[in-house]
């Protein structure tokens, strides 16, 4: 018994994987773990980190919201955006965080500029998620302990 997972965005298939033992996703009602023989489920997901374990090895993905469907041991994640944690460029994410914070600060100090507050917030959240994902990968490499 194992899960087949599929992470897709409108632009590409990010990952398909068989024989997954467990998957943890950022559901809108809280983190949720999916094990084999899970009941049919359809849930919205919020920006966060998705982790799954296959043959004892864990992998992290950055998700920017979307939907998750579970049915007959098949998990389909329809993500607004998704990236494997080890594909993320930490420096770029850090730069994006700075930019977003700066823009957010300007937007709040000076509402007349007409900067898009919601957009700045969203991009700040995205870059924070990326950084968190990168951080998880790093920590896992140094101590080797699973963190689920």
């Amino acid at each position: 018994m194992a899960l087949t997972i599929e992470i897709v965005t409108v632009e590409r298939v990010v990952r398909t994987e068989k024989d997954v033992e467990v998957l943890i996703a950022p559901g809108s009602e809280g983190q949720l773990a999916i094990l084999p023989r899970h009941a049919a489920l359809m849930t919205t997901i919020v920006p966060g980190i998705l982790t799954f374990r296959r043959a004892g090895v864990e992998e992290d993905f950055m998700l920017a919201g979307g939907f998750m469907e579970v049915r007959d041991d098949r998990v389909t994640i329809l993500a607004d955006a998704a990236e494997a944690a080890d594909e993320i460029d930490a420096e770029r994410a850090e730069a994006a965080r700075h930019r977003a914070q700066e823009r957010l600060r300007q937007a709040m100090e000076n509402p007349s500029l007409g900067l898009d507050l919601a957009r700045a917030q969203a991009s700040l959240q995205r870059s924070l998620m990326r950084l968190r994902a990168v951080d998880r990968v790093r920590r896992r490499r140094t101590d080797g302990r699973p963190r689920m």
Binding site: V10, A39, A40, T43, T44, F67
Partner: peptide, 24 residues
């Protein structure tokens, strides 16, 4: 229809799904 669990609920899922569908 064979009962899915919807979180938070079918209406909310539908409401979030429709704009995505149009964007798609």
């Amino acid at each position: 229809r064979a009962d899915y669990i919807f979180e938070p609920g079918p209406e909310v899922v539908l409401e979030r799904l429709l704009p995505r569908y149009i964007e798609m």
